[in-house]
């Protein structure tokens, strides 16, 4: 007689399946601790050293804050963006490349569950990366937190935005070369000119609109406001932009999963 597996569902959600996706990716992350956590933490330490001791002393205060205090939130945001994008894009691409994505396709998991499972690990990795950098900053007296809820909002929302973008790119990519293209041509340039190292008023007047048109500016401005209470644009604008991006990218990712783009033959 068939006993049948008793699939545990509450509110129609396969919670165990979701949790398994998190466990699985966490186990993959545990296999690459240097790439996942040590590298961004060392990079942040170097930023603290360079901007704290070497360059920082020669630059006047910005908005009443030491230069290192001003820069560190941007450095933290860069690492969150990188962690989120790389986690999402490589996980989905690798699973497609080796074909073990089929394990999820043949299982009773909905597309929304697949996306949420992937994003949960993205947020976990980005949060651990961000909190690690924050603790280093606090340890070196380089930063503090003005608003914990807003700090967590920016980490979770921005990592989800770039997690969704990473999923879309991971589905689209047909080679490791393509997987890296958005990092090289989009994320790095936009993040570097998004106000990590300078205020908008430091830019030539004719170029200031470029910063306002750059979404990274709002992410960095948001987390800087949450950390040291310094901002150059209304927080509400950044929050609205982030929620809008979440909606657009979320619907796009869901649609791609639903039609099996890059997943099913």
């Amino acid at each position: 007689m068939w006993r049948g597996n008793k699939m545990s569902q509450t509110m129609g959600i396969n919670w165990i399946g979701l949790y398994t996706m998190v466990r699985r990716e966490a186990s993959r992350m545990a296999r690459i601790p240097i790439q996942a956590f040590i590298a961004p933490w060392i990079s942040a330490l170097l930023f603290i050293f360079i901007f704290g001791s070497v360059v920082g002393g020669r630059i006047s205060q910005i908005g009443g804050h030491r230069y290192l205090e001003f820069v560190l939130p941007g450095v933290l945001m860069l690492n969150i963006v990188n962690a989120a994008f790389i986690q999402a894009s490589t996980a989905i691409y690798f699973s497609r490349f080796i074909k073990f994505v089929e394990e999820m396709l043949v299982a009773p998991l909905s597309y929304v569950e697949m996306i949420i499972g992937s994003l949960s690990v993205v947020v976990l990795r980005a949060t651990v990366t961000g909190i690690g950098i924050l603790l280093m900053g606090i340890g070196f007296g380089a930063t503090h937190i003005e608003s914990w809820p807003m700090f967590l909002f920016w980490i979770v929302s921005v990592s989800t935005v770039f997690g969704l973008l990473g999923l879309i790119v991971g589905l689209w990519s047909k080679s490791f070369e393509q997987l890296n293209m958005p990092v090289v041509f989009l994320l790095t340039p936009l993040s570097m000119v998004g106000g990590v190292f300078n205020t908008i008023e430091m830019l030539p007047a004719k170029l200031q609109w470029l910063a306002y048109a750059n979404p990274f500016f709002y992410f960095i401005n948001g987390i800087r406001g949450a950390m040291i209470g310094f901002d150059e644009a209304p927080q509400g604008l950044g929050i609205g932009l982030t929620l809008g991006l979440l909606a657009v990218l979320g619907v796009t990712a869901w649609r791609l999963y639903a039609i099996g783009y890059g997943l099913r033959e």
């Binding site: 597996n5 008793k6 699939m7 545990s8 569902q9 396969n14 919670w15 165990i16 399946g17 949790y19 398994t20 996706m21 466990r23 699985r24 186990s27 394990e103 999820m104 299982a107 009773p108 998991l109």
Partner: peptide, 14 residues
């Protein structure tokens, strides 16, 4: 063991 375990998890098995 992980490979078999994860598949069981995807199928919602406790």
């Amino acid at each position: 063991r992980q490979i078999v375990d994860w598949m069981g998890g995807y199928f919602g098995m406790g």
